[in-house]
Design a protein around this nucleic acid. Structure first.
Length: 675
DNA sequence: CCGCGGAGTGTTTTT
DNA sequence: CACTCCGCGG
């Protein structure tokens, strides 16, 4: 066992019973999980009976890899995100609750398409007034599920202008559920819903409790109600459950996460032991001083006061002002290079930001200087149109009953529009296997010599070829790509860039044994752009720099961290400004960003902003522009040593009158009024 | 009935 | 500014 402080040691060596670990940033939480897994395995507990659930794919990967390094048996520990665990479990036991084993996962885009179809079925688009768009509808339904509140409540809070459609959306939700059950589709939320439903069955619950004797959940503060329920159901019988979290780092409220699960845990498991990890092993005291000041300013107090266990005070974090985004990017890029020349590996540095678009000027600058980097978060490569197009073809080859995939494939054929597509689709759905579809449906349509006959003939040939059982996944992929390439070139001006993506995708596909496996992984654990290119064998000094959204950086650490774009309206993001809870979440997000740094931290912003074609002066983030925070920072480059304050976003009233109603009672009042 | 072009809309974070 | 939706011409 390595050096562990008493609290860590206690957490690592508890074997039985429920445990709640409250772990401040950098307090060695990952180490605790890593060594607890090891400790369990070394105490004759079969690794297969340990279940480690995390919130993001990255965290899951990292945790298991670390534990596996000490004892290869740890690699057999069952681990992953709640969603991937749900997927595996439902594949296996789904039949019990009436799910077929051959379901398809819908990503957000697919789900929107499905909702669109349901809307059409219900005739919502024939209304005179504007009906909400499909992405809004999906969002409303998803929030209501993840937060466990009614459609009406969601609309009140997020889209009050659509309140009139409350009952329509309720009907839509039902229709959408029906549609998915009928077509064997599950969206991300369904994975959790049906897993919980499955666990409510006593027999299944017992069987799974039997299999997973030890449950561990990381980042518990970022789990939502459903995930909390799932955790409790899994552990209800044997009660061997350890949850680890930090309420100050809850940053997924928009997905229904709430620190309530942490608060509720001792109530659900009254016999639980609570262990607090408060000593910070990651950062220098200067960085922690800043972090603590930031936390002080968050309205809801969190008890954490991190103290560095490291001897070093370290350099004061910097706060840098730039004229425009380009200047900022230039400076950051050259500083990164400078640090690398001083011996800090690129892989030990990271640039963090609130939103992906903030990093675009920097990406350009890094490319110009040949600094290798990988980007996490933001625009997802697997959700781009060209990737989805190709995947749809693969889906059709795998499962000829996938209506949404067919829809996408057919709509790409020259001369086929909405109506023709519907007609062909109806016929396709009659048949259960691809051979029949090709022989019966396609044959007749091609024979008709309509304007789309040529396109369909090409598709038919490609599908026929692709369906050959003797081919490996790479070869199947190539057939699809060959068919799709002319469509790609016709559809996109930047097709050569997109073709690159598809080439990378082909290389990923080649590693798979079967298309089914590829498609399942793609839905549940999709590859992140740039990540797969880094082989594990590459020596540390050649690994690239990390660019990441703060959300995706959670749980990770670097020697040097840059947080760029600290602008009011970016962090906090402008959409959060009219809701106190959301501002607070942004505030915690800033805290999470700061606490990723071990030795050096650089905060920066630029003043020249162009938003919606209008030039404006970007103001420093309200989270930074506070005396107790500024005093912890070394400022550089402020014009005239002062920040000219041009109001871009209205600050919340400093002297608020005593409220007569709080939000809840106001809501009640309004509802009363309507009655 | 398809496909193109103009108007209008909302712009984040992740499974 | 990028994407979606709608209306019109072919």
């Amino acid at each position: 066992m390595p050096d562990l402080n008493p609290a860590q040691f206690a957490a690592v060596t508890i074997i039985d019973g429920p445990v709640l670990v409250i772990a401040g940033a950098g307090s060695g939480k990952t180490r605790v999980i890593e060594y607890r897994v090891l400790h369990l395995v070394q105490n004759k507990i079969s690794p297969e009976s340990i279940l480690l659930l995390t919130f993001t794919r990255r965290a899951a990967r990292e945790m298991l890899e670390r534990a596996g390094r000490h004892d290869s048996r740890c690699k057999n520990v069952e681990g992953g995100t709640f969603h991937s665990f749900a997927f595996k479990t439902l594949k296996r036991y789904g039949k019990i609750i009436g799910l077929s084993g051959a379901f398809t996962i819908l990503d957000e885009g697919d789900a929107e398409e499905a909702i669109h179809r349901c809307c059409a079925k219900l005739g919502f688009f024939e209304k005179k007034e504007r009906f909400p768009r499909k992405d809004t509808l999906r969002n409303v339904i998803s929030i209501s599920i993840n937060k466990g509140i009614s459609i009406g409540r969601v609309l009140e809070k997020e889209f009050p202008h659509f309140l009139q459609y409350t009952s329509d959306i309720e009907n839509l939700r039902e229709e959408y559920v029906k549609y998915k059950i009928d077509k064997n589709y599950l969206d991300y939320d369904d994975l959790l819903i049906y897993l919980r439903l499955l666990l409510e069955n006593e027999e299944v619950r017992n069987r799974l409790s039997q299999k997973y004797q030890f449950i561990m959940v990381d980042e518990y503060q970022d789990t939502n109600k459903l995930q909390g329920d799932i955790t409790c159901l899994l552990a209800e019988r044997h009660r061997n459950v350890m949850v680890v979290g930090d309420d100050a780092q809850c940053i997924y409220g928009f997905r229904g996460a709430s620190h309530e699960n942490i608060m509720e845990f001792p109530k659900k498991f009254p016999e639980c032991k609570i262990i607090k990890l408060e000593e910070n092993y990651r950062s220098t005291q200067s960085i922690l001083d800043l972090a603590n000041s930031v936390l002080e300013n968050v309205k809801n107090k969190y008890s954490k006061c991190l103290v560095s266990a490291r001897k070093k005070t370290g350099e004061k974090p910097y706060l840098l002002f730039f004229k425009n985004a380009h200047d900022e990017a230039e400076w950051v890029a050259s500083k990164i290079k400078e640090l690398r020349d001083e011996g800090v590996f690129l892989s030990h540095q990271a640039v963090l930001f609130r939103s992906a678009y903030i990093s675009i000027p920097l990406q350009a600058e890094l490319s110009k200087r040949n600094i290798p980097y990988q980007v996490f978060g933001g625009l997802k490569f697997y959700e781009t149109a060209h990737v989805k197009d190709v995947i749809a073809h693969l889906k059709v080859i795998t499962n000829p009953r996938d209506e949404l995939a067919w829809n996408r494939v057919l709509m790409l054929v020259e001369g086929i529009g909405l109506k023709t597509c519907e007609r062909i689709l109806e016929e396709i759905m009659v048949y259960a296997n691809s051979d029949d579809v090709i022989a019966k449906v396609f044959q007749t349509y091609v024979a008709k010599r309509d304007r789309y006959a040529e396109g369909l003939a090409k598709l038919k040939d490609a599908l026929k070829l692709g369906h050959n059982k003797d081919l490996n996944v790479g070869e199947q992929f190539e057939i699809v790509l060959k068919y799709y390439k002319p469509i790609l070139q016709d559809k996109f001006d930047d097709w050569h860039l997109r073709l690159n993506d598809l080439e990378t995708l082909r290389q990923i596909a080649m590693r798979y044994e079967s298309l089914e496996q590829l498609l399942a992984d793609f839905a549940i654990e999709p590859p992140e752009k740039g990540v797969w290119m880094v082989e594990p064998s590459v020596p540390e000094e050649e690994k690239p720099l990390t660019l990441s959204t703060i959300h995706s950086a959670k749980g990770l650490e670097w020697e040097v961290v840059f947080i760029i774009g600290l602008i009011d309206g970016v962090l906090p993001v402008s959409f959060a400004l009219n809701d106190d809870d959301e501002i607070e979440e942004e505030h915690r997000l800033f805290y999470v960003g700061i606490t990723r740094a071990k030795n050096n931290l650089f905060l920066s912003l630029y003043h020249e902003g162009i938003r919606g074609g209008i030039n404006q002066f970007n103001k420093i983030s309200r989270f930074v522009d506070v005396p107790n925070v500024l005093s912890k920072l070394e400022q550089k480059g402020a014009p005239d040593g002062k920040i000219k304050s041009v109001v871009t976003y209205k600050q919340a009233e400093k002297v608020a009158p005593t409220p007569i109603y709080d939000k809840k009672s106001l809501l009640r009042k309004v509802i009363e009024f309507f009655k």
